[in-house]
């Protein structure tokens, strides 16, 4: 298995007046090379769950194991290293730096790894061509369309060839055509051996036949169907 959560709880601002429990005793197993959808309304806890799987947030209690590493035992530094080796993120807001060019944005994860500029350019070029945004590679990201931004975000998530791709509400800002295109890219990625986890309540995603499993998240509790 690729991901295993056991009795995972997440409490924000623990011990303070504004304490909020986002997840309650989550037990979850996700197999490698599967395509999974976390379904739930806004505020249900699916983004928090995605952040824990993505090694961005540590669980307050319980055990989270991602790609063979138990997160709760990892210090922050090693969690970061594990994240960059294992997880590729696609955010709802894309989180692209608008002043950098498309190619620079895609290469960002490679900078602290000591990858040479030539290799960065080469790796980015392969992804840029694969995702059909070659004509935009030297454009500042702030000057391209939403669909193109989405592809930049996907390319950036793939640049380090991580085995897990996490997407948080990826179709929220896309029209139907672009959403379908995005999902097709995810299906294609799954065929290359990636594990895909998408948090969404968009029917286009949840009703996609290629989705292996739907995991419902309601008020911080997980219902595995």
């Amino acid at each position: 298995m690729m991901i295993e959560l056991e009795s995972v709880n997440k409490i924000y601002n623990q011990g303070q007046p504004n304490e909020v429990q986002a997840l309650y005793d989550v037990d979850l197993v996700i197999e490698a090379n599967s395509m999974v959808c976390l379904r739930g309304a806004s505020g249900s806890g699916k983004s928090t769950l995605l952040s824990i799987i993505g090694c961005i947030l540590p669980p307050t209690s319980g055990r989270a194991t991602v790609a063979g590493k138990q997160l709760s035992r990892l210090p922050d530094r090693f969690m970061t290293i594990h994240r960059r080796q294992t997880i590729g993120f696609i955010f709802q807001q894309f989180n692209i730096l608008p002043d950098l060019t498309v190619q620079e944005n895609i290469s960002l994860p490679l900078l602290p790894l000591g990858v040479s500029p030539e290799e960065r350019r080469m790796r980015a070029k392969v992804l840029i061509e694969r995702l059909g945004i070659s004509h935009r590679q030297n454009f500042p990201a702030g000057q391209i369309s939403g669909g193109e931004l989405q592809r930049v975000a996907i390319a950036r998530a793939l640049i380090n060839d991580q085995p897990i791709i996490l997407a948080d509400e990826p179709t929220a800002h896309l029209d139907t055509k672009l959403s379908k295109e995005f999902l097709q890219i995810m299906v294609d990625l799954k065929k290359t051996g990636k594990t895909i986890i998408i948090a969404s309540h968009d029917p286009l995603v949840t009703e996609k036949p290629e989705i292996d499993r739907i995991i419902d998240v309601t008020d911080g509790r997980v219902d595995v169907s």
Binding site: R77, R83, L97, P109, P112, R156, N160
Partner: peptide, 16 residues
């Protein structure tokens, strides 16, 4: 702050 956050999510360490 957002840029720092994005870089951290992308695997940049505090030292980077």
């Amino acid at each position: 702050k957002r840029e720092i956050g994005i870089l951290k999510v992308l695997g940049w360490q505090t030292t980077d």
